[in-house]
Computed example of a mutant assay.
Amino acid sequence: VEIMAERIGQSFLAPGPLVGPFPSGAPAIFVGQAAALGQPAGLIGAVGEDDFGQLNIDRLRALGADVSAITSHKGHATGTAFVTYLADASRHFV
């Protein structure tokens, strides 16, 4: 999932407002969009058995993607990216 800084130029070196979580991950975004366009699409992968993993699976399923080959691993966390946008439109990830 992706959690974003609310303000452009916001640093993660100090507390600040965040928005999210948003379903994310480039392969999942691509598969979800292909499925939304009516193309047969699915993803083979794994997520943590947590809310963020379920968020990603639910989004893909809602878009019509085959999620039958995605496993949830108990005791593991789903990958999370914190993103801030800089004034020059570049991004910084943690």
Rank of each mutant, 00 (worst) to 15 (best):
V1R: 08
V1C: 04
I3C: 01
M4G: 01
A5E: 05
E6T: 11
R7S: 00
R7I: 05
R7Q: 11
I8N: 00
I8E: 13
G9W: 12
G9I: 09
G9K: 10
G9F: 13
Q10R: 07
Q10P: 09
S11G: 07
F12I: 10
L13H: 12
A14C: 10
A14R: 04
P15N: 07
P15M: 13
G16K: 08
P17H: 14
G20I: 11
G20N: 08
P21Q: 15
P23M: 03
P23G: 03
P23E: 04
S24P: 08
S24Q: 02
G25V: 02
A28H: 01
I29R: 07
F30R: 03
V31K: 06
Q33S: 10
A34C: 14
A35S: 00
A35G: 00
A35D: 00
Q39C: 00
P40D: 07
P40L: 11
A41K: 02
A41V: 09
G42E: 03
I44N: 04
I44V: 15
I44A: 10
G45W: 11
A46P: 01
A46K: 06
A46H: 09
V47Q: 02
G48F: 09
F52R: 08
F52Y: 10
F52K: 00
G53E: 10
G53C: 12
G53W: 12
L55Q: 14
L55H: 15
L55A: 10
N56C: 10
N56Y: 06
D58P: 10
D58F: 13
R59Q: 06
L60H: 03
L60I: 15
R61H: 02
R61K: 01
R61E: 00
G64M: 09
A65Y: 09
A65C: 13
D66F: 03
D66Y: 05
D66V: 13
D66W: 05
S68C: 09
S68H: 12
S68L: 12
S68N: 12
I70A: 01
I70W: 03
I70P: 03
I70R: 04
T71L: 02
S72K: 15
H73T: 15
G75T: 04
G75V: 02
G75E: 02
H76Y: 14
T78C: 02
T78Q: 04
A81Y: 04
V83I: 15
V83Y: 04
T84M: 01
L86W: 14
L86A: 13
D88C: 14
A89C: 09
A89M: 14
A89F: 11
H92N: 12
F93A: 05
F93L: 14
V94M: 09
V94A: 14
V94S: 10
